[in-house]
Structures are given as structure tokens and as C-alpha cells.
């Protein structure tokens, strides 16, 4: 008796679900969660991390619309609307910052981005495993040096007074070169530093992608008489194309970011007109001078541009039949 009434109730519920597709969907979502509960448990710390440290602080962008004062707090501070944004865009500094940021990033995109691909193709062609591993370790190594050290090395090499290169030049009877204080060299210097530091590290993802290429393809190509370069062109490069595209999209999203430490450490009075970028500007006005609202406005601008570019690049990638980031 008891069991029958139970079944009866169950079937009524089922018909209710059938009549209500939303509830049905809810149930299947819930079932899905229940089924994969351990996986979700595993993801929980990550979800909490993103909520707590990425999404909650995002409310902070509200202070870019007020004259934020820490003592008064966010609710009592005076709202000023778009004042800080207007001040930023009408400031003559804006164009300089924009130019410098774009120039440094475009140089990096053109000269830095292709290098890890080239390097990883070359490493992929190495046959001796031990030799390959050694080379890999050596090219990764500079990535683990902090910018402070790299800039220190740069100064040791290139400063006019005690720099080794300039001392060699002087000893050879040549004129010293003002690498560090000449605005013409600054962007190039940054690009070279970035390449030295991170070109090797950038190969990690490409090498992983190449490892997943089916070796049968190479064998088949070899039987068909394809040489090494043919194999690289028709097998290796197409094999990593989607990874390249994804990284390119992500890179474009960061086009407004310039490694703060690097520029900050390399900057000096003689080159500041080509060195000042959004990040150093935000640091100076926000942290050093305490103009929190204004510098937040600059930060928001940067993020919005970055977001638009990511979405744009992703759309473009999809148009050309690639997967994109999402």
C-alpha cells in the first residue's frame, strides 16, 4: 500500500516535469552536478578563488566614478560621474602613453611572438633526447630571473661609465654609445630584453602541442618522399596552428599591458617621454600620489580595451574556421 502510493506520487511528479521543461532542465543540471559531485568538489577551491579574488574586487572599479577617500569609504565618497575619465582623455599625456604602450607591444608582437615558434620547431627537430633536454633547460632558465636582475645585468653591460661594452668600445678607440639614455634605443632595448628572458619559456606550449601530433603523419610523409622542411611546413606547423591562434588572441588582449617592472626599472629622466606607459602612470598617480580614483579610471580604460580586443580577435579567429579561446 505504502509503496504503491509512493509510485503514484512519483509518476505525478514526472508528469509535472514533463509539462514544465524549465523544471526538467533544472533537474538535469542538478543530476549532472550530483553525478560529477567529486569533480565539482575538486573545482570548488578554484571557483571560490575566482569569486573572492577576481569578481568581488571588481566592484572596486566603482571608485573610478567618485572622488574616493579611504577614510570616508566607498559609500560616503563623493560621486563625480565621468570626471576622471574626461580628465584622462583630455590630458596631453594620454596620447604619449598610448603611443608608447602600443609601440612597445607592437614591437613585441612582431619580433617576440614568432620567435618561440621558430625555436620550438628547431628543438622539435633535434633527435638526441639528452641533447634536446639540455637545450630546453638552458633556454628556459632566463625566465626564472626577475626583472631586477635582468635590468641589473643590462646596466652592467650597457651603462656609459662602467658598462663593459662601452669600456670595450672606449678601449678600441671608438665613441661610447648612450644605450640607456638615448630615447631611440629604448623600445628596441625592451624588446631584446623580453626576447632574452622569455623566448625560451614561450616554447613550452608549442613543444607540448607538437608532441601531440601523430607520428604516423610524419612516417607517411617520409614514405611519400617529403624532406624535413616539407614535413615542418605541412605537418608540424598546421599541427600547432590552433595553439598559435589561441596564444595570439590572448596576447592581443594584453596589448595595453606592458610589463610594469621592466619599464619601471629601465626608465630614467632622459628617456621618460618614450618610456612612460599606462602601467607606470597608474603606479605614479595611484600608489605614489594617492590619486586612487583617477588611476582606477585609467586601469578600467585599459581593461575595457583589452576585453574588446580579445572578443574581436576571437570572432575573427572563428571566422577563419579556428576554435578561438571560448
Amino acid at each position: 500500500m505504502a509503496s504503491r502510493s509512493g509510485t503514484a506520487r512519483g509518476s505525478t511528479l514526472e508528469t509535472a516535469y514533463k509539462k514544465n521543461p524549465a523544471a526538467q532542465r533544472r533537474r538535469s543540471v542538478w543530476n549532472g552536478i550530483k553525478r560529477d559531485r567529486y569533480l565539482y568538489l575538486l573545482a570548488l577551491p578554484g571557483i571560490v578563488f575566482f569569486l573572492l579574488f577576481k569578481y568581488v574586487p571588481m566592484w572596486g572599479i566603482l571608485i573610478s566614478f567618485q572622488n574616493y577617500s579611504p577614510y570616508q569609504g566607498m559609500w560616503a565618497s563623493q560621486w563625480v560621474g565621468l570626471e576622471h575619465y574626461i580628465r584622462f582623455f583630455s590630458n596631453p599625456d594620454f596620447l604619449i602613453l598610448f603611443r608608447n604602450t602600443m609601440a612597445i607591444n607592437m614591437l613585441s608582437l612582431i619580433f617576440f611572438f614568432p620567435l618561440p615558434i621558430l625555436l620550438s620547431v628547431m628543438m622539435n627537430e633535434l633527435r638526441g633526447t639528452k641533447f634536446k633536454k639540455t637545450i630546453q633547460s638552458i633556454v628556459y632558465l632566463p625566465h626564472f630571473l626577475s626583472w631586477v636582475i635582468i635590468v641589473g645585468i643590462t646596466f652592467l653591460l650597457l651603462s656609459t661609465g662602467e658598462g663593459i661594452i662601452n669600456q670595450l668600445l672606449a678601449a678600441a678607440g671608438l665613441n661610447k654609445i648612450d644605450f640607456l639614455t638615448n630615447p631611440n634605443y629604448f623600445w628596441g632595448l625592451l624588446t631584446v630584453q623580453s626576447i632574452w628572458k622569455d623566448a625560451g619559456w614561450g616554447t613550452v606550449l608549442f613543444l607540448a602541442a607538437m608532441a601531440s601530433i601523430d607520428p604516423q603523419l610524419n612516417e607517411a610523409a617520409k614514405i611519400d618522399g617529403a624532406g624535413r622542411f616539407r614535413q615542418i611546413w605541412h605537418i608540424t606547423l598546421p599541427g600547432i596552428r590552433s595553439v598559435v591562434i589561441i596564444l595570439l588572441i590572448l596576447r592581443i588582449g594584453h596589448i595595453m599591458d606592458v610589463g610594469f617592472e621592466q619599464v619601471f626599472l629601465m626608465m630614467n629622466g632622459a628617456v621618460s617621454e618614450v618610456a612612460d606607459v599606462f602601467d607606470t602612470y597608474v603606479y605614479r598617480l595611484g600608489i605614489k600620489q594617492g590619486q586612487l580614483s583617477f588611476s582606477t579610471a585609467v586601469g578600467v580604460f585599459k581593461s575595457v580595451v583589452g576585453l574588446i580586443l580579445v572578443i574581436g580577435a576571437n570572432k575573427l579567429a572563428k571566422k577563419f574556421g579556428e576554435d578561438g579561446v571560448y
Binding site: D93, D178, T181, N182, N268, G269, A270, S272, E273, R284, L285, K288, Q289, Q291
Partner: peptide, 22 residues
């Protein structure tokens, strides 16, 4: 307070360049 620091930096930039003979 609001515009002074950036102005000082701007002034110092050109002074540095003049000292260095740029």
C-alpha cells in the same frame, strides 16, 4: 597637490636631458 608631482617630473625630464647634452 594634484598637478605638482607630474609637473616636477616634466621639468626634471628636460633638465636631465640638458645636463646630458641631449
Amino acid at each position: 597637490v594634484s598637478a605638482g608631482p607630474e609637473l616636477s617630473k616634466d621639468i626634471q625630464d628636460i633638465k636631465t636631458k640638458i645636463i646630458l647634452g641631449k
